[in-house]
Structure formats: structure tokens, C-alpha cells
């Protein structure tokens, strides 16, 4: 080391030690900080409540329900054939966040549309699930907060929301039971 560091070029072993100590201290401080930051992330019990089962039998064609999943609503809609048709007729070029209706439902269960009921703009709950609520210009959902319109596949069609309503992970346990999450 001593050979490689010439006296007089302004660099000394002491400078090196200062830098190394400061770098080590910085890494140590950042490491010590992590548990405190990570403690603010979802805790184990919060993560444990991650899935629900829903009975679909009471939902007639054309009706929809809201279920509570991870502290937010899930929309489960039993679509009419016209609604499915309407969603599938739309050309991809017209969509803000292009995705085919087929990719948003399970094959053979096309009538069941299951969505996280949270507007992708700023997190409001769009209206249109209960009968009598406005369903927007495209027959799906309408978010009253900032005026986003979703279609019968839950895709964003008009308004400030950037993305389609999210499709959660789900699986059919039987013909009338679904597990979300």
C-alpha cells in the first residue's frame, strides 16, 4: 500500500481510512434503518387474511354483488349474454388499456366477471354493482369521484383512470363457489 501511495499527490492512507469508515458507517446505517421501514409493510396477520370464498348461487343473471377481500371490495357480476357480446365486439384500438374480454374471465365461465372494485385512478369504489346505481356510458361501472367509465368487461373507456379494473387471482372450487386470492 505504501508504495502505491505517493506522498505529495494529496492522497494519504488517512484519506482512504476516512472514506472507508464513512462508507462502512453509511452501509451500517442503511442496514439498521431497513427493519424500521419494513415494519411499516403489511404484517404477517394482514397477509394471512389474503383469500376468501364466495357462494355464487344467489347471484342471478344480470346481477352483481360486492365481497370484501383484503380490505377492499371485489365485484362479482353474472353477465347477461348481451353484456358479454357487447364487451367482445369492441375493437382493441378503441381501448385505453387494450385487453380482450376473453383474457379477463375464465374459459367456460364467461358470464362471471370478477374484479377488484377499486378505481385505478385514485382508489374510489365505482358505482354500478347494485341495481339502480349509474353504470356509466358503457354499461359497466362509473366512478363518481373523477368520472371514469368502465365497460361490461371492467375496462376503462373514458375518464382519468389509466388502467382497467384489476382482475384478482381466483379459481372456481365448484360451479357455484369461487375462491378469490
Amino acid at each position: 500500500m505504501a508504495d502505491t501511495m505517493q506522498a505529495g499527490d494529496g492522497q494519504t492512507r488517512r484519506d482512504f481510512i476516512y472514506l472507508a469508515a464513512a462508507a462502512m458507517g453509511g452501509v451500517g446505517a442503511a442496514t439498521a434503518l431497513w427493519p424500521f421501514i419494513h415494519s411499516l409493510n403489511p404484517a404477517a396477520d394482514t397477509l394471512a387474511l389474503a383469500s376468501i370464498e364466495v357462494d355464487l348461487a344467489p347471484i342471478a343473471t344480470g346481477q352483481a354483488i360486492k365481497a370484501m377481500w383484503r380490505g377492499k371490495p371485489v365485484f362479482i357480476r353474472n353477465r347477461t349474454p348481451e353484456e358479454i357480446d357487447q364487451a367482445r365486439k369492441v375493437p382493441m384500438a378503441e381501448l385505453i388499456d387494450p385487453q380482450a374480454d376473453q383474457d379477463r374471465v375464465k374459459a367456460g365461465k364467461e358470464n362471471w366477471l370478477i374484479l377488484v372494485g377499486v378505481c385505478t385512478h385514485l382508489g374510489c369504489i365505482p358505482l354500478g354493482t347494485s341495481s339502480g346505481e349509474p353504470r356509466g356510458d358503457y354499461g359497466g361501472w362509473f366512478c363518481p369521484c373523477h368520472g371514469s367509465h368502465y365497460d361490461t368487461a371492467g375496462r376503462i373507456r373514458k375518464g382519468p383512470a389509466p388502467l382497467n379494473l384489476h382482475v384478482p387471482e381466483y379459481a372456481f372450487i365448484s360451479d357455484t363457489r369461487v375462491k378469490v386470492g
Binding site: I37, L40, N41, P42, A43, T46, R70, G71, K72, V118
Partner: peptide
């Protein structure tokens, strides 16, 4: 998620 400490 970090701000919420959960999913909502």
C-alpha cells in the same frame, strides 16, 4: 403498500 401497511 408501505404507506398503508396493508392492501387498503
Amino acid at each position: 403498500t408501505l404507506l398503508w401497511g396493508g392492501f387498503s
